[in-house]
């Protein structure tokens, strides 16, 4: 017989007296279920310390990781999408944009800016998956296009960090042509002999894979990212079989010859600095 006996049954604390645990104090890894504080998770650059699972992060985080001192000048901050087709599905497109802007605090699925990486001047474009699946419409295309113009003018390297489901359906033909637009603009960068490093992160598929993401002088991916043209579900439907283990992961894409290397987020900045050193278009320390 126990020496403690419960006198009253059930929970007696009323809802209004309940103590709330503040949201977002803890992070639980979806791969290995390890729990760490969000502060610690952030310090570890949003990578699980146990299993190295790379959490999806956005432009703000990548800018903080890559730009020296987290300092940069952002381009075309206020640029937002038009509604060229008056597109309406279950929601009107401008309403969808507005609610996404409100929810995410972002204007569209990409941020572009200029700053220094280990002392070297460069332009970085980073996509945000949480804004309509990181989809590419006119704003993504135009911002990349203008970022390329800056890189050409300032004779500095370009990095694009891809994280996208592909072209944005609600801008239909306009979205499709952003693939041609960004690829065409990249020829100007190549013409000027300026290096372009493409970083593919989880996930990179569709029209983004089939345009600028695959066109880097160096293509890099984070570990375990989903990278492909057709989405895995579509491929599965096509072949009518289960997909092999590891299909369309960074490691698979590296093995098939479409990536130069895979880099852990902790080493990303160093690896980039090292690569730009080899390209050596501007000397790192000017006298």
């Amino acid at each position: 017989m126990g020496w403690f006996k419960r006198i009253k049954e059930g929970i007696t604390t009323s809802t209004k007296d309940k103590k709330e645990t503040p949201e977002g104090l803890w992070y639980k890894c979806p791969e290995c279920n390890t729990v760490v504080s969000t502060d610690e998770h952030k310090k570890n650059l949003w990578v699980c310390g146990e299993c190295n699972y790379h959490s999806r992060v956005g432009s703000a985080e990548y800018f903080e990781i890559l730009f020296d001192g987290g300092k940069f000048t952002e381009f075309n901050k206020a640029m937002s999408s038009g509604d060229p087709l008056k597109f309406e599905d279950t929601k009107k497109y401008p309403d969808r944009i507005k609610s996404s802007q409100k929810k995410t605090g972002l204007k569209d699925a990409i941020k572009t800016g200029q700053g220094k990486l280990n002392g070297r001047n460069l332009v970085i474009c980073a996509m945000d998956f949480k804004f309509i699946g990181g989809s590419m419409g006119s704003v993504v295309g135009e911002k990349i296009s203008r970022a390329i113009d800056v890189a050409v003018k300032e004779k500095c390297p370009l990095i694009i960090i891809s994280k996208s489901g592909g072209a944005r359906m609600m801008e239909a033909g306009f979205s499709l042509m952003q693939m041609a637009k960004t690829s065409a603009k990249l020829t100007l960068l190549a013409e000027a002999k300026l290096p372009y490093v493409s970083i593919l992160t989880d996930p990179t598929t569709g029209g983004v894979t089939a345009s600028f993401a695959m066109l880097g002088d160096i293509n890099i991916a984070e570990p375990g990212a989903l990278i492909g043209f057709a989405g895995p579900r579509v491929v599965k439907e096509t072949i009518g079989k289960d997909l092999p283990e590891g299909f369309q992961t960074s490691e698979f894409v590296l093995e098939h010859g479409f990536l130069d290397f895979i880099v852990h987020r902790h080493q990303l900045k160093e690896k980039l600095a090292e690569s730009f050193d080899f390209f050596a278009i501007t000397s790192k320390t000017k006298k």
Partner: peptide
């Protein structure tokens, strides 16, 4: 959108 198409880089080929 087939398996081999992905292996051989459909995205890269179009890009």
């Amino acid at each position: 959108p087939g398996l081999e198409a992905e292996e051989r880089g459909q995205g890269e080929a179009i890009a």
